[in-house]
Simulated scan of single mutants.
Amino acid sequence: MKKAFKTEIILFKAQQQKMNQTIGTCRYVYNLYLSKAQNHYKQTGKHLSGYDFSKWLNNVYVKEQDCWIKDVSSKAVKQAIMNGDRAFKNFFKGITKFPRFKKKKDQQVKAYFPKNNQTDLLVERHRIKVPTIGWVRLKEYGYIPTDRVVKSCTISQQGNRYCISVLCEMDTPQTILISEHDGIGVDVGLKEFAVCSHHEIFSNINKTPKIKKLEKQLKRQQRKLSRSYEQNKNRKVGEICYKNRQKQLIRLQKLHVRLTNIRREYTRFVVNQLVKAKPAYITIEDLNVKGMMKNRHLSKAVAQQNFHYFKEWLLGKCKECGIELRQVSRFYPSSKLCSCCGAKKVKLSLLDRTYHCNNCQIEINRDFNASLNLKYATEYEVLT
Results as ranks from 00 to 15, higher is better:
358 N>E: 15
324 E>C: 04
223 R>S: 12
63 K>N: 13
263 R>D: 02
199 H>A: 08
230 E>K: 11
39 N>S: 15
352 D>L: 05
265 E>P: 00
239 E>Q: 14
7 T>P: 08
126 H>M: 11
280 A>F: 08
89 K>L: 13
7 T>M: 13
123 V>T: 06
219 K>E: 07
125 R>A: 14
97 K>G: 14
185 G>F: 10
199 H>V: 11
360 C>K: 02
124 E>C: 04
331 F>G: 05
31 N>M: 07
42 K>E: 15
58 N>M: 09
137 R>T: 10
339 S>C: 13
235 R>A: 01
143 Y>S: 05
74 S>V: 07
71 D>H: 10
90 N>T: 09
330 R>V: 09
138 L>F: 06
61 Y>R: 13
114 P>H: 10
218 L>S: 10
241 C>H: 13
256 H>A: 01
362 I>F: 00
276 K>Q: 12
4 A>K: 12
4 A>F: 01
329 S>Q: 10
361 Q>C: 11
321 C>A: 13
229 Y>V: 09
138 L>E: 03
194 A>Q: 02
369 N>W: 04
72 V>F: 02
229 Y>P: 02
333 P>C: 01
94 G>A: 07
180 E>H: 04
147 D>I: 02
108 Q>F: 01
258 R>S: 11
290 K>V: 15
116 N>L: 15
30 Y>S: 12
303 A>F: 01
274 L>M: 15
233 K>P: 05
245 R>C: 02
7 T>N: 13
10 I>T: 11
308 H>T: 14
238 G>D: 00
332 Y>G: 06
138 L>H: 06
1 M>W: 03
294 K>F: 00
151 K>W: 08
161 R>V: 03
